[in-house]
C-alpha cells in the first residue's frame, strides 16, 4: 500500500492547481478573491461556461483553431513521415550531414527566425491567411522527421527486401508496408502537431487578423466586463473549455503515444 501512498500524494500535488482552476471556473466573480478564501462556491455558477462560450465567440474561433490545427497536422505528418522514411531506409550522398542539419535546426532559438519569417510572409502577401501554416506543413518539421526516422529505422530489413522482390517501387513500399505498421508513430506525431498549433500564441497574433485568428489569441482578451475589468472566473471556464479537447485527444490516444515512444525510442 505504501507505493499507492506516494503515487497518490504526487498525483494530488500535480493536479491541485488544475483542480483549483476547475473550482474557480464555477465560482461567482465575488467569490474569486474573497477574504476569507471561498473554497467551494455557494452555488455552482455553470453559467460561466455559457458566458465563456458566447463572450469569446467560441464556435467561430474554435472552428478556426480546429481547421488550422488539422490542416497543419495532416500535412506535417505526411511530409515528415516521407522525409523520415527517406532518412531511415534510403541512402544518398550527404545523408548523415543532412540529418545532423535536422537536429541542428532544433537547437535554434525560435525568436531568431521570428522577424525574418514575418518579413518574408508579408512580402509574399501571405499574412492574415493560413498559408504560413500550410507551408510549414508542406516543409515537414525537424521534430517529426526525427520521430519517424527513429521509428522506421527499427523495421527489419527483410520487410522491404521481400516487397522489392515483388516489384514494389519505393513509394509503394512506403505506403503499403511501412505506413500501415506506423500507427503509434503517426498518432504521436499527429497529436504533437495538433498541440503545437492549438496552443501557440505568438505566431497567430503575428500572422493572423481579428477574424481568422485562433482561440488562443482570442481567449487572452475576451473575458472582461464592459469596463475592461478582467472576469477571472469566466476566464477559467474558457481555459477549461480550451484545454478539454486536448485532454480528450490525449486520453483517446494515450496508449498509442506510449507505444509510439517505446518503439521509436529504444531500438537504437
Amino acid at each position: 500500500m505504501r507505493k499507492y501512498g506516494v503515487v497518490l500524494a504526487l498525483a494530488a500535488i500535480f493536479s491541485l492547481p488544475v483542480v483549483w482552476v476547475l473550482i474557480t471556473s464555477i465560482k461567482k466573480q465575488s467569490e474569486y478573491a474573497a477574504s476569507p478564501i471561498v473554497l467551494f462556491p455557494a452555488v455552482p455558477q455553470w453559467i460561466n461556461y455559457q458566458l465563456a462560450v458566447t463572450m469569446a465567440d467560441f464556435p467561430k474561433y474554435a472552428t478556426n483553431s480546429v481547421f488550422l490545427s488539422s490542416a497543419y497536422t495532416i500535412l506535417v505528418v505526411i511530409t515528415s513521415a516521407l522525409v523520415g522514411f527517406g532518412f531511415a531506409r534510403h541512402r544518398g550522398p550527404g545523408r548523415d550531414r543532412l540529418f545532423l542539419l535536422v537536429i541542428g535546426t532544433m537547437m535554434l532559438p525560435t525568436l531568431v527566425l521570428f522577424v525574418p519569417q514575418f518579413v518574408m510572409f508579408a512580402r509574399l502577401d501571405l499574412t492574415n491567411s493560413y498559408w504560413p501554416w500550410i507551408l510549414w506543413g508542406l516543409a515537414a518539421s525537424p521534430y517529426h522527421v526525427f520521430l519517424f526516422r527513429q521509428f522506421f529505422a527499427a523495421f527489419p530489413r527483410e520487410l522491404e527486401d521481400a516487397a522489392e522482390v515483388d516489384g514494389c517501387g519505393p513509394l509503394r513500399v512506403f505506403l503499403q508496408i511501412f505506413i500501415p505498421n506506423a500507427g503509434p508513430a503517426l498518432a504521436a506525431s499527429a497529436i504533437f502537431a495538433f498541440l503545437w498549433v492549438w496552443g501557440d500564441y505568438l505566431y497567430p497574433i503575428l500572422l493572423l487578423n481579428d477574424q481568422n485568428t485562433t482561440l488562443a489569441v482570442k481567449l487572452a482578451k475576451a473575458y472582461v466586463d464592459p469596463r475592461g475589468n478582467p472576469l477571472q472566473t469566466i476566464t477559467m471556464a474558457g481555459i477549461v473549455l480550451y484545454v478539454l479537447p486536448l485532454v480528450a485527444l490525449f486520453f483517446a490516444a494515450q496508449r498509442y503515444i506510449v507505444r509510439g515512444v517505446v518503439t521509436t525510442g529504444l531500438k537504437g
Partner: peptide
C-alpha cells in the same frame, strides 16, 4: 520550420550516440 514549444515529449532518444564532431558538423 515549426517551433514546437514542448520539445521533451516526442523526441525519442535512440540513436543519439551522435559524437561531438558530428554535432559540430551539423551546426556548421
Amino acid at each position: 520550420m515549426s517551433a514546437d514549444t514542448k520539445p521533451t515529449l516526442n523526441a525519442p532518444h535512440g540513436q543519439l550516440r551522435t559524437t561531438r564532431r558530428r554535432l559540430l558538423a551539423g551546426a556548421g
